[in-house]
């Protein structure tokens, strides 16, 4: 577990530096057990920072989400660093962003958090719907300990752990300038049994499954916006000429949208699971991303978000790539 006083002290040092503009971390949410992103600009603000298993957000998103206004004539752009707290999975987003030359390594200052797993907030909410909070979650051994309204509840880790953490192979950040705790050894493996189970069904069964899911989509684009890898200035979904995907919400456009979203992440998705977490209508988006992830690994022996100097999958090739499907 990360020691909060050490975290705040590190943050205080970092935000006091002249070459750091802001620090992105976590703070307590407004109700229940939630935690939320915190933006710190001043050493006086570091005491709100926390880290616990409720800190689910992938803060790497904010590096590329910034909306830059044109710099007024006569003014210099603010080139100071952005400091960001990342868990193991989140750090892979930074690696992949840098592999794609989204920004230079020295633009960011990475505070790494070795992570033992975060909760699935929906599962917490379902068990304790009436907690106004603030409630605190911590991990003790193989149990999550929830403290709220003067009560203390212990729940087996397995029951509240987020699904992505059950398959996590990178609990310790792959890139960091400061590491807040001892490295955590990988504690899980991934066998893609969920993807394989779906692959083995008939075509009509698969379509029936996805048709139901896609028909629920309201196209709020939260899956795109939360994604650290979705940072195109001119997104295919917003273009009008050509309008690749229409704005109308029906099964045809929703399907095209979900194909485009997942496919644009082929060889890029780092499995932080944020898209599926935020989806208000609970479309299992990770089952789409993971299919592509699995194929990319099997066909091209490629894993995104682990090497900063890896060439992007779809703008590289090997002469002996598989071509059994070609007539």
């Amino acid at each position: 577990m990360v020691d909060v006083s050490k975290l705040r002290e590190t943050a205080r040092e970092i935000i006091s530096r002249e070459d750091v503009r802001e620090l992105i971390g976590y703070r307590a949410g407004t109700y229940g057990f939630r935690a939320r992103p915190a933006f710190v600009y001043d050493p006086g603000e570091v005491d709100q920072l926390i880290f616990n298993p409720a800190c689910v957000n992938n803060l790497a998103t904010y590096i590329t989400l910034e909306e830059k206004l044109p710099v007024p004539r006569g003014q210099e752009p603010d080139l100071r660093k952005v400091a960001v707290m990342v868990k193991g999975c989140d750090s892979r987003a930074l690696v992949q962003q840098m592999a794609e030359n989204a920004y230079e390594r020295d633009r960011i200052l990475v505070i790494g958090i070795p992570c033992t797993g975060v909760v699935d907030m929906d599962k917490v909410q379902a068990r304790f719907p009436d907690v106004l909070g603030p409630g605190e979650i911590s991990l003790e051994g193989d149990k999550f300990v929830l403290i709220f309204d003067g009560r203390r509840e212990e729940i087996p880790k397995e029951e509240l752990l987020a699904d992505k953490c059950k398959r996590c192979r990178f609990p310790t950040p792959l890139v960091y300038d400061v590491l807040l705790d001892e490295e955590v050894a990988p504690f899980a493996t991934d066998d893609y049994s969920d993807v394989e189970a779906l692959e083995s069904r008939s075509q009509d069964e698969k379509w029936a499954y996805w048709e139901e899911k896609f028909s629920r989509c309201i196209r709020c684009y939260s899956c795109r916006n939360v994604c650290p890898m979705c940072y195109c200035n001119d997104c295919i979904l917003d273009r009008l000429r050509p309008q690749w995907i229409r704005r109308s919400v029906d099964i045809s456009e929703n399907t095209a949208f979900h194909i485009a979203r997942a496919y644009h992440l082929a060889g890029r998705c780092i499995q932080c699971g944020e898209c599926q977490r935020v989806c208000p209508v609970e479309i299992p988006l990770m089952e789409l991303n993971r299919k592509l992830y699995k194929d990319v690994e099997e066909l091209y022996d490629f894993e995104p978000g682990v090497k900063v100097d890896a060439p992007p999958l779809l703008s590289s090739y090997r002469p002996d790539d598989p071509e059994d499907f070609i007539l």
């Binding site: 933006f39 916006n225 939360v226 208000p280």
Partner: peptide, 15 residues
């Protein structure tokens, strides 16, 4: 300050 963390998605308005 209140919009620092906003992702710019449509959840709050569509729902």
């Amino acid at each position: 300050r209140v919009s620092d963390a906003c992702l710019g998605c449509g959840i709050c308005t569509f729902l």
